[in-house]
Design a protein around this nucleic acid. Structure first.
Lengths: 185, 185
DNA sequence: GTCTATAATTTGATAGAC
DNA sequence: GTCTATCAAATTATAGAC
């Protein structure tokens, strides 16, 4: 694995902090300390905090859908595809031991720059459309939309509840039940 | 309606701000301005911010379960009781146009005082146990727990997704589907 | 209970040298 | 690209008068 560029190191540090404490839990001085440069140098890469936030969500969203598409690559049935979606969220919880960046920022929306909120909305819009696309073709469009929203909402809620109760098994309890319903027409 | 005491006014202002921007979006100076006193006077009522946070979650939790029990008072079937639970969350979204205080603080947990996190956990624990209590008696305990977690998670997620997408109907789309499953044994 | 005054720290951000 | 130096504003919090 070759050396990371400074912007990448900064985004890594920012993602770690922001997914645990939220937007305001990330400061330029913390990021500078994390990457062994000075805070003024952080401003060179991301002039305003809003720029950092937007870049972070863009990378997070891109990575999310790459992992998701890879996980769903060999899946053929709606159930297998839903399991790939589930694993992608579960991996975020297991490996990062943190909530979804966009779930957290969505909750904090009122205090955030509009450019940041727009990127968060796009993440959810993409999530819902992806899930709509894997549901059984015979379902009517509005029913697909409804179920996609349930599935995305339940995954977002499950990752928050599991994190709060410090028990990752709660995530599986919540999402396994969803799987049992996916095939039902 | 008689005059509110200053602690109540402060908690009202704090709840409004915290449910929109999170824990760090609430400052003593903002609360002082909201209630027409000085920030040092706010410290008289809540010496440390942690005290304010704990008091706010305690009140929020008490109010939540009072509204919930009242809404479920005349409900007899599991479905009717679930609908009361659903209405309680939906009211929070409709009237406050904000996410659940505890859902937001759970997501920000890593940056918050331990006393605050403990109160947030207790809110979720109470939520899950309440829903377990309304599920059909013939279900095995572990299945009741599983379904309670799905229901609480889905409501938390739905309020966040609906807020982010600025469409309260998404909340109904997500939760109506849950209702259709409640009676299934 | 509320005020004035103030302390100590942190924050996002900029100017200009190397 | 990174540094030193600095800034203005905001933050939590305290001391002491009324």
């Amino acid at each position: 694995m070759r050396d990371q560029t400074m912007p990448t190191k900064l985004l890594d540090a920012a993602e770690y902090r922001m997914r645990r404490g939220g937007y305001n839990a990330v400061s330029y001085r913390d990021l500078a300390a994390d990457t062994n440069i000075k805070s003024s140098s952080v401003h060179y890469h991301f002039p305003r905090k809003e720029d950092l936030g937007v870049a972070l969500i863009e990378r997070y969203t891109k990575d999310f859908f790459e992992v998701l598409d890879k996980a769903a690559k060999d899946a053929t049935t709606p159930l297998e595809k839903l399991q790939a979606f589930n694993r992608t969220y579960r991996n975020a919880l297991t490996h990062s031991k943190a909530v979804c960046l966009c779930g957290l920022l969505a909750a904090e929306a009122a205090g955030l720059p509009e450019a940041v909120n727009a990127k968060v909305e796009a993440f959810f819009d993409g999530n819902i459309r992806w899930v709509e696309g894997i549901l059984p073709a015979e379902l009517p469009e509005d029913e697909k939309t409804r179920r996609a929203i349930v599935i995305v909402s339940a995954h977002q809620g499950a990752i928050i509840v599991a994190t709060s109760m410090r028990d990752a098994n709660l995530f599986d309890s919540a999402t396994t039940y969803l799987e049992a319903q996916i095939g039902v027409t």
